Each structure stands twice: as C-alpha cells, then as structure tokens.
Simulated scan of single mutants.
Amino acid sequence: MNQQSTAEHALLGAPHQYLTPLTRPSLEEAQSWCRELTRLHYENFHVASMFVPPHARRHFDSIYSYCRVADDLGDEVDDPLVAMRLLDAWGSMLDECYDTPERSMHPVFVALRETIVACELPRQLFHDLLIAFRMDQVKTEYETWQELLDYSHYSANPVGRLVLLVCGYREESIALLSDKICTALQLANFWQDVVEDKERGRRYIPAEWMDRFHIDEGQIEGRIFTPEFGAMIRDLVTRTRAMLAEGGEITRHVDRDLAVTLNLFRKGGDAILSGIAAQEYDVLRGRPVVSKSKKVSLLIGSLFEKLRSRISW
C-alpha cells in the first residue's frame, strides 16, 4: 500500500471532516484548515487565543486542532473498539509528524510540525492526551479523588503546559501552577455535567465521596436530589474552587498578556462553579451554564485588562 492510501485509510471510520486528504496540503492550507476548525468550535481555548500575540495564534490553532480531532475520535464514535483503533492511528500519525514529517498528509500534522519545531514541544504531552481519550473507552467510573487527579494529568494538564511552552515558559514551577488551573477546570466540567455524563454511562463523582455523604448510585440516574447530595456537590465545588485559586498565582510569574489569557481560563472555571452554587448545588435538575451576559462580561473585562497592560505611564 503506498503512502497516500495508507494515510487515506488510517482514519477509516472517523467523522468525515477528519479523513486524511489524498494530497498533502501546503503549510498555508493546513494552517487555514486548523484556523477554521478552531473558529467553528467556539470554546474557551479559542476565545483565550484571541488574547495571545498574533504570531502565536497559528500555534494555538494547530494545538487546538490536534486536541479537537483526538477528542472527537474518542467521543464521536459509538464503537469503543473503533475509537481505540482511531486513537492509535492518530498516535501513529503524531509519531510520523515527529520522526518523518515529510510523510505527514493530514492538515493537522502539517501545521503542527511547524509549531513543534518553533516551540520545541515534546511529543509526550501530545501522547498524554491520547492516554486520557483511551481511558474514556474503558474506564467509566472513578473511585477516589486521586483517580480524578491522575486522569486530569493526562486529559487537561498537557494543554496548559503546551500553552506555556508556546509562550516561552519552560519552568516546572510555573507548569505546576498551570496544572492546578487545568485540573480544576476539568473537575468543574465534571460537576457541571453529572447528568449528561451519566446518560453516556460515565460517573466522575468519586465513589469515596458518595460513600461519605451516603449517596446511592441510583440517585444520579433517577435525578433524586437530597440535602446530602447537595452537601456532596458543595464540598466538591469548594475543593475545586480552592485549587483554581491556588493556580491563579501563576499570573505573578508570567507576562501581562499571558496573565490575561490564563485569568480568562480561571474566571471561566470560577463562573461554572458559581453557576452550580446558584442552583443550590442541584446539578440533577439541569446543567448549570454560564450565561451569555456573564461570558460577555468576562471577555470585556479581559479586553480592558489587556488594554491596561499596554499602557505605560
């Protein structure tokens, strides 16, 4: 099988928009593909990239596109065996991007190669994300808080570390603060999506917390809210908010532009937790959301903060 047909069939079974093209795109075409994918998925990572220096945005787009496609290969494919095969193929394409980049055919890896070289990004961070997506195929329940931290080590923390590397920060002490923010964001999403995750056959509330507050597994499926359930979620939210605050110290160790971006991430997570609290911790009656007005407020606040950072007196 020749190089083109190998690439073409590597993602057989993936969502159509992610199939490898028959011809290798140019760097400009690949970067345009990643930019469009990022634009179409209006999420925190894309919004935050608006606040980084223009020369770094293409790197954010390529990293985001790698994460977005990998996430969808794991989550948008019904058969776990097919999802595992697709994730393995994505990992092989990542190794190809590092070892024989001239053979890369997918626009993500054509664009990502430039980012990898320019920012000296280690491949393990990209592979760590795939570990998390593979875990999602086989592990559906979590027993302890530590298990959630271990999962977040792979699912969330690599993204923050990649952002720091793109922005020129390689100190481990700063990366550890980033880990706290990223892990807390992951946990906030878990507490926000309790019902949705249960409908997909997953439970991220650790069993040790359910035992401590005398919560029965059937309460989540039956959406049976009790004072004990509310107390459990309040405890998890409090612990997560403290982690966010601890990670917020990172803004004292980076430049003002990056601090604005990281603050936007942190405030977004804090807004999710506040939304949960506003529902009196009843995440079973509906998914707590950050209102559009709140999102706009966060964006405007970040824009003003960025403008202030540009003014010197």
Score class of each variant (00 low, 15 high):
Glu143Ala: 12
Thr144Cys: 06
Gln146Asn: 13
Gln146Met: 10
Leu149Ile: 10
Asp150Leu: 07
Asp150Gln: 11
Tyr151Arg: 03
His153Val: 01
His153Asp: 09
Tyr154Ala: 10
Ala156Cys: 13
Ala156Val: 07
Asn157Cys: 14
Asn157Phe: 02
Pro158Ser: 08
Pro158Val: 06
Val159Thr: 12
Gly160Ala: 06
Val163Met: 14
Leu164Val: 05
Val166Met: 10
Cys167Asp: 08
Gly168Cys: 06
Arg170Thr: 14
Arg170Gly: 00
Arg170Phe: 07
Glu171Pro: 01
Ser173Val: 11
Ser173Trp: 00
Leu176Ser: 13
Leu177Ile: 08
Ser178Tyr: 07
Ser178Val: 09
Asp179Leu: 00
Asp179Arg: 02
Lys180Asp: 15
Ile181Gln: 08
Cys182Gly: 04
Thr183Gly: 02
Thr183Glu: 14
Ala184Lys: 07
Leu185Glu: 01
Gln186Ser: 07
Ala188Gln: 10
Asn189Gly: 11
Asn189Tyr: 02
Gln192Arg: 15
Val194Ala: 09
Val195Gly: 03
Val195Asp: 02
Asp197Arg: 06
Lys198Leu: 07
Lys198Gly: 13
Glu199His: 09
Arg200Lys: 13
Arg200Glu: 12
Gly201Glu: 03
Tyr204Asp: 02
Pro206Gln: 09
Glu208Arg: 07
Glu208Gly: 02
Glu208Ser: 12
Glu208Asn: 07
Met210Lys: 13
Arg212Phe: 11
His214Arg: 12
His214Leu: 05
Glu217Phe: 11
Glu217Tyr: 11
Gly218Ala: 00
Ile220Asp: 03
Ile220Lys: 00
Glu221Cys: 08
Gly222Glu: 15
Gly222Cys: 10
Arg223Pro: 05
Ile224Glu: 14
Phe225Asn: 12
Phe225Lys: 02
Thr226Tyr: 10
Pro227Tyr: 15
Phe229Val: 04
Phe229Ala: 06
Phe229Ile: 04
Gly230Thr: 09
Ala231Gln: 15
Met232Gly: 05
Ile233Met: 04
Val237Asp: 01
Val237Ser: 06
Thr238Tyr: 05
Arg239Thr: 13
Arg241Ala: 13
Leu244Gln: 04
Ala245Asp: 15
Glu246Pro: 02
Gly247Lys: 01
Gly247Asn: 05
Gly248Arg: 03
Gly248Tyr: 04
Gly248Pro: 03
Gly248Ala: 04
Glu249Phe: 02
Ile250His: 02
Thr251Trp: 00
Thr251Cys: 13
Arg252Cys: 05
Arg252Asp: 12
Val254Leu: 01
Val254Lys: 01
Arg256Glu: 15
Asp257Ser: 08
Asp257Glu: 09
